[in-house]
């Protein structure tokens, strides 16, 4: 019944997506070019920090590619989460004035910056061409990884968005948690750097599985993730999703009164 309502509201989703894409680049000079510039600058900083200062095991790949392959999906995740936590508040006018499935707002947020992900991947591929890294058939996994990342974005968005309606503390804490997440997820380093005893525990963070899968599909066999890690990630993802759906569904009808 809920699902039918959601399905009927597809046009709202498509026009909200269009709105967000259009307004991001209106009245900017560089426009879409910013999306290309951002990952390159990020990669440059990460390369400087981890390759220039720290010592890093050699996997036979330029460090910038190891960073970029993870960074592409991390950027997608983090921009969707920061959007997801505020999307209900930002569109409070819609919540208090129109009756539509509010989950549309969160689905919209979890898809945010898909264009950015695409451009980041193109930048990564350009670097691969430059360094003569072969493209493999593993690239076909990318749509699957994309799908799982969206589900993760949505699951966390359901939690953070709902809490934010009641306690605006979320606004302050989410950017902090995301910065923390960047360092505790294997973005600037690889999974192998994690001590073996902690590895299973580390996989509970669903971003670990996603990032490892992404590296595998871009850079190949060297980074093949073990199945148990992926399964642990999927399980914890499922848990976050179900609990998020529950929390959101429980409080959704109160949003209009409290927001």
């Amino acid at each position: 019944m809920r699902f039918t309502l959601l399905w009927k509201a597809r046009p709202i989703l498509s026009h909200l997506i269009r709105r967000d894409v259009l307004i991001t680049y209106k009245q900017t000079i560089l426009g879409v070019f910013w999306t290309v510039l951002k990952p390159i600058m990020m990669a440059a900083i990460i390369v400087f920090v981890f390759e220039g200062i720290g010592n890093f095991p050699d996997f036979g790949f330029p460090y910038v590619l190891i960073a970029l392959s993870a960074l592409s999906v991390w950027e997608f995740f983090s921009s969707a989460i920061s959007r997801g936590s505020v999307c209900l508040i930002d569109d409070r006018d819609l919540i208090t004035r129109v009756n539509f499935p509010r989950m549309i707002l969160l689905i919209n947020a979890s898809l945010k910056n898909s264009i950015g992900l695409f451009i980041n991947l193109v930048v990564t591929f350009a670097f691969m061409l430059y360094y003569n890294i072969p493209f493999t058939v593993n690239l076909l996994w990318i749509p699957v990884i994309y799908f799982f990342t969206i589900i993760l974005n949505l699951s966390l968005g359901l939690w953070l968005g709902t809490i934010n309606v009641f306690f605006r503390d979320v606004n302050t804490i989410v950017p902090f948690l995301l910065r923390l997440g960047l360092f505790i997820s294997p973005v600037g380093f690889t999974f192998n750097s994690v001590p073996e005893v902690w590895q299973k525990l580390y996989c509970i963070n669903p971003m670990v599985g996603i990032i490892r899968a992404m590296r595998f599909s871009i850079l190949g066999e060297t980074f093949r993730p073990d199945l148990s890690c992926i399964l642990i990630g999927c399980l914890s993802l499922l848990l976050v999703l179900l609990s998020g759906l529950y929390i959101f569904g429980r409080y959704e009808r109160k949003f209009a009164d409290l927001i």
Binding site: H15, R18, R19, L94, V98
Partner: peptide, 10 residues
């Protein structure tokens, strides 16, 4: 663009 956005919301 607003006609479409507003219309679908309604």
């Amino acid at each position: 663009e607003n006609i479409y956005l507003n219309g679908t919301l309604l």
